[in-house]
Amino acid sequence: MTDLPPAPPPKPNPDSVARQRHFAIGLFRLSGALIVMFGFLAIMQRFAWVQGDKAKAFGAIMVVTGLFQFIAVPRILLALFRTRPPQ
């Protein structure tokens, strides 16, 4: 055991941080689009496990959720990334 202070953590590479953030935003947009498509399939009653009015309500909820994830979440992440520099 030594009495040396711990070494500071290495600084992150700004290029790799930007690449990771861009990838995360792209994944949120892609998953939002997939949720919207899934919702439309449910509205069209393409699944045996949900039919009738329940399918339309479920599909509408999925479409709204997917649109929120496709449109709003990337903007929220961008605002978060602008205010907080990489640590």
Rank of each mutant, 00 (worst) to 15 (best):
Q20I: 02
R75N: 06
V50Q: 08
A72P: 09
A72Q: 13
M1L: 15
Q87H: 10
W49P: 02
T2D: 13
A55E: 06
A57R: 13
P8H: 05
P8Y: 06
H22S: 13
M44Y: 11
R75M: 09
A72T: 03
V17H: 08
Q45L: 01
F38I: 04
F68M: 07
I76W: 11
Q45T: 00
V17W: 08
W49S: 15
R19A: 15
V64R: 07
L27N: 09
V63I: 06
F70N: 04
G39W: 00
L4A: 12
I71P: 03
R82S: 15
T83M: 14
Q45D: 08
T65A: 10
T65L: 14
A57Q: 11
G59F: 05
K56E: 12
A48N: 13
G39L: 08
P14L: 10
I25Q: 11
L30F: 09
P5E: 15
Q45A: 08
R84C: 03
F47T: 05
A72V: 05
K54C: 05
L67N: 00
M37V: 06
G66C: 05
Q20P: 00
R29N: 01
R19C: 11
V73H: 03
K54G: 12
T2M: 10
M62V: 02
L27G: 03
S16M: 14
A42G: 02
I35H: 08
A24I: 02
R82M: 12
L78P: 01
P86M: 07
A7Y: 06
F47D: 13
L78D: 14
P6D: 14
M62H: 07
Q45S: 07
T2E: 14
K56H: 14
K11R: 11
L27E: 05
R19I: 10
P9V: 00
G59S: 07
H22I: 08
F68N: 00
R46S: 10
V63P: 02
K11G: 02
M1E: 15
G59Y: 11
